[in-house]
C-alpha cells in the first residue's frame, strides 16, 4: 500500500464530511460531519507519519483529538441551550445573528 491510497481515502472522507456539513439541516448532524472531517485529516497525518518515519504527525493527531473533544463539549452545550431557548435544532431557524 503506498501513500497515495491513504491520501485518496482521506480526501474522500473529508469530502463526504464537507458535503454533509453543507446539506444537513440539523445542528447535531452538522457536528457529526465536522467530526468526520477531523477524522479524515487525522488519517492523512498518521499516513504521512508512518511513511516518513516521523513521529510528529501522531503528536498532532493527539492535539486534533483534544480539540475535537473540546469542540464537541462546548458545541453540544450550546446546542442544549439553543434547544431549551428556541425549541428547535434546525440551523435555518436560528438566524438571529445573521447579519
Amino acid at each position: 500500500m503506498d501513500l497515495l491510497h491513504y491520501l485518496i481515502l482521506s480526501m474522500l472522507l473529508f469530502t463526504v464530511g464537507a458535503v454533509g456539513f453543507i446539506i444537513k439541516k440539523n445542528i447535531i448532524s452538522m457536528f457529526l460531519c465536522v467530526e468526520l472531517m477531523l477524522n479524515a485529516v487525522n488519517l492523512s497525518f498518521v499516513a504521512f507519519s508512518s511513511f516518513l518515519n516521523q513521529v510528529d504527525g501522531q503528536i498532532i493527531v493527539f492535539f486534533v483529538m483534544v480539540i475535537a473533544a473540546v469542540e464537541a463539549a462546548v458545541g453540544l452545550a450550546i446546542t442544549i441551550v439553543l434547544y431549551r431557548n428556541r425549541g428547535t435544532l434546525s440551523a435555518d431557524d436560528t438566524d438571529t445573528m445573521k447579519w
Binding site: 474522500l12 472522507l13 463526504v16 464530511g17 454533509g20 446539506i23 444537513k24 460531519c33 468526520l36
Partner: peptide
Amino acid sequence: LISAILVV
C-alpha cells in the same frame, strides 16, 4: 467510506 456516506 460507506459508513461516512451513511452518516450523511
